[in-house]
Amino acid sequence: MNRFRQALTLFFDYFKIGLFTFGGGYAMLSLIEKTFVEKRKLITEEEFLDITTIAESTPGVIAINSATYIGYKALGFIGSLLSTVAVSLPSFLIILLISIFYESFSEIAVIQHILKGLSIAIIFLIFRAGLNLFKIEKKNVITLIITSLAFISVLIIKYFRLSFSTIYIILIGGFITLLSYLIRLLIERRKKK
């Protein structure tokens, strides 16, 4: 019974977090800290920092990463499943509702004007997101070269309508850093001899 109640609390905590955060995973992290570190005392401050690092450095949706992690800490596999479903459910239902009315709404001239304005705000936000990530990145010569190459390749691919997936660019970037790491390792070993 106690476990059942815990599961229920976890579900509703995460449902609330999903319902009340605007702007995605990063915005969600502070609410997660408040709820699970301060209020529920489910995880410690160190664990929270660990979750943040893991959620940011592993692939995937940050909100889901942190929900899976905290859910697992609280109640094992069932916990991770519950919190993942709970954090996704509000979004899913709200967007479904909007989608159903979207087609008929989006034809109204006033709505079209607002949407066009929103799109331009999004372009601004995408640019700012790039800047933010660039600022917090641990920079070195290799990563700077990779970032610039990726930047140029996107523009070339789009301008000439080439069919070269960005997945390959991501993999090539990973390969280059791996290679440079191995070369540095080799050089250091030579020096030691």
Binding site: E137, S148, A150, V154, I170
Partner: peptide, 10 residues
Amino acid sequence: QAVVIGLIFG
């Protein structure tokens, strides 16, 4: 991560 930053800017 370095690639993704370049991709976002691009």
